[in-house]
Design a protein around this nucleic acid. Sequence first.
DNA 1: AAGACTTTTTTCGAGCCTCGAAAAAATAGT
DNA 2: ACTATTTTTTCGAGGCTCGAAAAAAGTCTT
Lengths: 413, 413
Amino acid sequence: MTAGIRHDDLRRRNRGLVIAAVRRAGQPSRTEIASTTRLSHSTISAISADLIDEGILAEAKAGEHANARRGRPQVGLSLNPEAATVIVAVLSLNELSAATINYSGGLIAEESRTLATATISRDDLIAELVAMLCRLTAGMEGRARPLRIVLAIQGITDADARTMLWSPITPHKDVPFAEILERKLGIPTTVENDCNMMAVALRWRDPARYRADFIAILLSHGIGMGLVLKGNLFTGTRSSGGEFGHVIHRPDGALCRCGRRGCIEAYAGDYAIWRNAQGKSELSTPEDGVQPEDMKQLAERARAAEGPEREAYRKAGTAIGYGIGSLFALIDPAPIAFVGAGAAAFDLLEPAIRAAIAETAGGQHSDAIAFDTIPDELPLIRQGCAMRALTYVDQEIFADGYPASPLLQADIA
Amino acid sequence: MTAGIRHDDLRRRNRGLVIAAVRRAGQPSRTEIASTTRLSHSTISAISADLIDEGILAEAKAGEHANARRGRPQVGLSLNPEAATVIVAVLSLNELSAATINYSGGLIAEESRTLATATISRDDLIAELVAMLCRLTAGMEGRARPLRIVLAIQGITDADARTMLWSPITPHKDVPFAEILERKLGIPTTVENDCNMMAVALRWRDPARYRADFIAILLSHGIGMGLVLKGNLFTGTRSSGGEFGHVIHRPDGALCRCGRRGCIEAYAGDYAIWRNAQGKSELSTPEDGVQPEDMKQLAERARAAEGPEREAYRKAGTAIGYGIGSLFALIDPAPIAFVGAGAAAFDLLEPAIRAAIAETAGGQHSDAIAFDTIPDELPLIRQGCAMRALTYVDQEIFADGYPASPLLQADIA
DNA sequence: AAGACTTTTTTCGAGCCTCGAAAAAATAGT
DNA sequence: ACTATTTTTTCGAGGCTCGAAAAAAGTCTT
């Protein structure tokens, strides 16, 4: 059952709150922090003094604030970029990339390479990943040693974010990436779904728009979704959840890559749009080799004239729209970001999406539902991973206070 | 943004925790409470002494514990039934009922009456409700004065649980029941969806089975759902949410009571099963007058022999199954309780439900999904309302400590 | 340029809260 | 009657947050 609050939890939570306020606001003064956290000035003063002593926060240089008001000038607090380091890695179709990131979110180094993910052996896949991360972290010791790895994958992870249960980009299942990386590199690791990381990133990029409730939908070869509800990333109870692409659109409908029939993806995934545009049967085997370039041309033809291409996009939009509508019957309408190469053809999808939503229970206000499109998913996924890794450091390591962190201890001596 | 924890919040939360522990366990000793809350014995001792002083908790009589172990015997703590009173009311098709409940959940008094909900005027509906609650609370003053009303309705409420936005049982919309009752009776009120209250009740009835994640589905004239995810009742962001009955099963399919087409309810609601069994078109207007007795006979005929009746149940099961499967694609499989008169015909639905789930993404483990049936929904709804009202009193009133409560103040003088 | 004014930040003592250790209480065994 | 055992209370210590007051660091005014 729920645990009680002990006295020392209090400090920990309030330290975490101060760190979070600084990460969010960028360079807030102590006064600003006091007002956002509703803690007293004295408390903020004490906590921030500790955090500065520990090298987690830093005071901004005096000259930086331009707004010359009367009174003692506010001193901005910022994250000390050198307080920590984290690693992000993204495994996607035929590509592996990774980067080291400093505590304030800045890029230190990055690397990426193409990889035949569909055919590579399990051991080679793991070896490539480990090797890349070893190269990136070579020479980073002491305080520069990364405190956290976040690996984003296309596919499903377990609820503890430790194992890739299944992925469309590789035949290998149940790969315990977190355990492997922790053993090889000695750095705590989580494995996250790429769409969930997109959602996390959107919250940081535009908190005004993507605040408490919103949806990120990835349109690419497959269809993925990241869902934020009441300010929390929504994950399944046993897995990363949110398999929006495999919600059933039409029972006994088109054949999906997953082997089932009638999934949304079987109408709206790249391969499905392609299949429909070619006039092939909806029951024909999904093709893996549809290239982004193919899709671009397909979209061009669809824009140019009425025809099977346009019809294929219409069907895709309808499937997505009904899916969103069903989701809206369970939760309430929220802003939606369409991410990925498929979002470049959003103009072709939108009318059908809106029309389908209007047919559903969530559709009373279908005109008011806001859509955004973001064609390039990789930067978004990376940013999400980085923020996830950094907030972990914020809350699970730095909030705990000095003596608990041997790495920092060394710094004082 | 998130508020900091102040020093006095600490006591409030820990008091709430102790009260919750007692409500859950029934008659735990201080030692047990200390171990479930993980607070120290001294803290529990201090808090429970306060709570006993305030008349919220009471020590059990000495002789009640039979297990004669060595050492000082444990003293059970229990809720003082007279610490407070709450009211529950349930508005359902053609029936209004209400009860007063004491602090330990016992029934004090109840009343119910039939009401032509479909045709009654808005003012009369409100007047009936107010009158019933006034009768029930007559003479309850001082400490006996109810501290909370929870009204359950079939239909949708706003996110603040103050207004009935829409209900299938009455044409009246946007009825601000909470405001009305607060003005007329002066008691804080919330308006809740009936299926959500069913879910709340299941958690209290069988916490081992219905713990963190489960689903309650109401099968009656319409189809409703209450969803608990990660230990929290899941509601929409702007409304009570969970309109499972209006998730689309087949685009452009059967005509639903809500005016749209292809909703799950349009296949699985009583009226839909009836319509299909009669061989009527799926686009024919839903009939309101299908009686429970009719459905019983329909089920009998379906059990007796293959025919349109059995087929109608099969279609209903398929719709429900696909709906559950789509839900399972977004969240993970969880135990499901089927509640209501329709659950009495669950034997007719189950094969089709399981077959449909197996066709969906959530269906890998469709055999393992646990189903329960509970034919009588009213007691469940009531219990849910009672627990909701009481935990409100626990956490929002009694956790705050003595001086804040003028009603209790009077008791000391 | 000096003093007045304003705003931010720090300091300091008070008041709570939880905790651990020790004491007290209450009962069963011997 | 005395010991062992377990529960509960008591008590002092240590921390934390808070409000008020003081200190700090500027701008504005004359």
